[in-house]
């Protein structure tokens, strides 16, 4: 059974007085441990797809099934729980909380989970921060970091609660190539070691090369779906 399944998912929204068909009927099954890259020109529906999987947006029609359970059937609290305990996001524009330090930003998902002691939270947060090589920056505020460092904080924040699925929207778009490589290797390591499923959109050739599956979107439809054997 795939971990995540999309059945005939469409999404249209209005922009001004124009109806935009972001997704026109997408069928996609994602297995646990996938390292999936979604590519396509801008406006092809990549971000919308990620939003719908992450339950930040609801499909206009069709069904998203997670672990055999349709998301549509979940309550608002159930969805909050899904986002809290199973999914993590890495945003293109980082979206760190500006008033919190690096460590506090990373602790935030754990705070929301409400099941850890202060000590445990600190330890877990420091572990991931060290993993993204920001150990000496833990007490800085986001505005004191470079773009790459911010993105690494965002990744650390996504990974700290060890989610089953990490959704990343152009995670390397704002990074120089060296940092981007660094970020990719962190993601790959997690994918390898903890079977974390990664779904990311990208324009980045290099990122695409590292994926074990590449789905190409064009005009809201899947144009191609390539699996690589690793």
């Amino acid at each position: 059974m795939p971990l995540l399944e999309m059945c005939k998912v469409t999404r249209q929204y209005t922009k001004g007085n124009q109806v935009v068909h972001a997704l026109r009927g997408v069928d996609l099954a994602i297995d646990k441990g996938a390292f999936l890259s979604i590519v396509g020109p801008s406006g092809s529906g990549k971000s919308t797809l990620l939003n719908i999987i992450g339950c930040l947006d609801a499909p206009s029609s069709g069904e998203v099934i997670y672990n055999g359970q349709p998301l549509r059937a979940m309550s608002e609290n159930g969805l909050a729980d899904y986002r809290k305990n199973h999914i993590a996001f890495i945003f293109q524009s980082f979206n760190l909380i500006p008033v919190l330090t690096v460590r506090e930003n990373v602790e935030l998902p754990l705070v929301i989970e409400r099941k850890w002691t202060r000590r445990q939270m600190q330890d877990k947060a420091m572990a991931v921060i060290t993993a993204v090589e920001l150990g000496d920056m833990a007490d800085r505020l986001p505005k004191e970091l470079s773009g790459g460092q911010e993105q690494r904080v965002a990744i650390a924040r996504a990974l700290v609660k060890q989610p089953l699925v990490v959704l990343a929207d152009e995670p390397t778009a704002n990074l120089d190539s060296k940092t981007a490589e660094n970020v990719i290797s962190i993601m790959q390591r997690l994918n390898r070691e903890q079977q974390t499923t990664f779904v990311f959109s990208t324009h980045d050739r290099m990122m695409e090369q590292h994926a074990n599956r590449v789905v190409t979107l064009r005009d809201g439809l899947i144009a191609s779906d390539t699996r690589k054997e690793s």
Binding site: G54, D81, R83, K84, N85, A88, N95, I97, P109, I112
Partner: peptide, 11 residues
Amino acid sequence: EIGVLRAFGFT
């Protein structure tokens, strides 16, 4: 920021 908090499961 609010979006992020909710994305991380803030009710």
